[in-house]
Design a protein around this nucleic acid. Structure first.
Lengths: 120, 120
DNA sequence: CAGGATCCCTTAGGATACTG
DNA sequence: CAGTATCCTAAGGGATCCTG
């Protein structure tokens, strides 16, 4: 599968986590599913403004394979599929929180000087 | 510049943080510099087994531009350059810690069943 | 509605050779 | 030693069309 996770031998935890999170929309999908608990395909598409059907499907499938997302199919017509986070998805979201905070701070001070506390 | 950070408008903190961390070796560089405090180019290369000179330079330059890494050049011969983390680099490392822990746990249970606590 | 299939473009990543 | 320059491949991402 194209774009699937490596699942290869990892050097460290960051490595393994990044492997699972890398992908243009995965962070947002996590965010969306965490905020709404349950979302349908079309709802997610609207939430992730600009994502193509292919990419959304692909990311969703990878995240499902990685055990982050649960996919519930209702055998109805018209078809209905609901996505939600698994417990792993939720713990990942929590682990991501500090990083999100760091990023937010970074956005705040965008443009200000960059400190240097290197060797000095 | 190829592979440079977007620095574009970010949707959320995760987005901004991921932008700065994405890159095959950045996590490891952060790790190396955090562990050793100061590293020379060749030392980093050895630490990051398999990285090419080009990629190491490229990543280092991007991280420098992002204010994560400090580059100290000693005008000697033979040339000597020392890399270290800035305070931003160190806080990023701290923000990354929970994610690293999550990834480590994930590696541990590799192969075990993937829980499903979705809609149920 | 949800998504599979296909084609195409852009980007990340890497090998190698050369230089201050 | 610490890069820079160049070339190449692989993977990520996306548009569009088609189907259960």
């Amino acid at each position: 599968m194209a774009g699937a996770s490596r699942r290869g031998p990892y050097i460290c935890g960051i490595d393994a986590a990044m492997d699972v999170v890398s992908g243009k929309w995965k962070g947002l999908i996590l965010w969306e599913l965490n905020a709404h608990r349950v979302r349908r395909f079309a709802e997610l598409r609207r939430g992730l403004n600009g994502v193509s059907e292919k990419m959304l499907t692909q990311h969703l499938r990878e995240m499902e394979a990685d055990g982050l997302v649960h996919r519930e199919v209702y055998p109805e017509v018209p078809p209905r599929v609901e996505y939600s986070l698994t417990v792993h998805g939720r713990t990942l979201n929590q682990a991501l929180a500090p990083l999100g905070a760091w990023g937010s701070e970074r956005i705040q001070r965008e443009g200000s000087e960059v400190v240097d506390a290197a060797g000095a």
